[in-house]
């Protein structure tokens, strides 16, 4: 995160101070800053829900953490958040990248179709619920029900997980280094392939995470039709 801090200091003169401003104003200021320089730095906005929602381009640095729904519907922007975030981080992201230096609250990364979400601290219950293609990386522990009804994408947990990990998993992969309290319905433990190892190694290198693919267990779905329909 040193490089991130240096980058923040470099552009701090353009900083958007969110104190006392409403969501519409702050998000419009972020869009304007991105239009002008490709970069926006935001501070004192942790009370806002939906900060930096719906961005297609740009680098956004958020100081001091963020509230609920930060980075919702992200569609290509890179968000770097210094501090903790509240609930529903990156809701329904389809592409782009969001990095959080602290912890994420309840249900980080729900309903995402794509993009990378990297949480360097812990992440709460129901993270990556109904994931349909994004990659969630959590450097420490995750809560219960993580990856519930995931249909595609990847979850990588470097720490431990709570109850019902991957509950009603349909497709996609969960890679976990630590222990889990229980696995969810319709899950199986599988062997990492060479592609899996390559994928994980690239992630660890990109985000400078201290981990080796061989340390991980892979969890997959038993079947992609656990409800009414059955395979022919």
């Amino acid at each position: 995160m040193l490089a991130v801090k240096q980058e923040m200091e470099r552009i701090s003169e353009q900083e958007i101070n969110g104190e006392g401003l409403d969501l519409r104003t702050v998000n419009q200021m972020i869009k304007n800053a991105i239009r002008e320089s490709g970069v926006a730095v935001v501070s004192h906005s942790e009370y806002l829900s939906g900060l930096a929602a719906g961005l297609r381009t740009g680098n956004v640095f958020i100081k001091g953490g963020a509230g609920d729904f930060v980075g919702s519907l992200n569609s290509g922007a890179k968000l770097t958040i210094e501090g903790d975030v509240q609930n529903f981080l990156a809701d329904n992201m389809t592409s782009g990248e969001i990095i959080v230096s602290g912890n994420a609250g309840y249900c980080a990364g729900p309903y995402c179709y794509g993009g990378n979400l990297v949480i360097l601290g812990h992440s709460g219950n129901f993270s990556a619920t109904m994931n349909k293609g994004a990659t969630l990386v959590v450097n420490e522990d995750v809560g219960d029900d993580v990856g519930t009804y995931m249909l595609a994408g990847n979850i990588v947990v470097l720490g431990n997980a709570g109850e019902k990990l991957g509950h009603f998993l349909i497709s996609g992969n969960i890679f976990i280094r630590g222990k889990w309290q229980s696995l969810g319905h319709n899950t199986n433990i599988d062997v990492l392939t060479s592609d899996d190892k390559k994928f994980l190694q690239q992630l660890f290198s990109k985000y400078r995470l201290d981990a080796r693919p061989e340390e991980f267990t892979k969890i997959v779905a038993q079947t992609d039709r656990p409800f009414y329909s059955k395979k022919d």
Binding site: F88, P110, Y111, T129, I170, D224, R225
Partner: peptide, 17 residues
């Protein structure tokens, strides 16, 4: 929908978020 072919798409009864 961004889901596997042939799988049931059963929406949750409430919003996870």
């Amino acid at each position: 929908r961004g889901i596997p072919i042939g799988t049931d798409a059963l929406s949750p009864p409430r919003y996870y978020d």
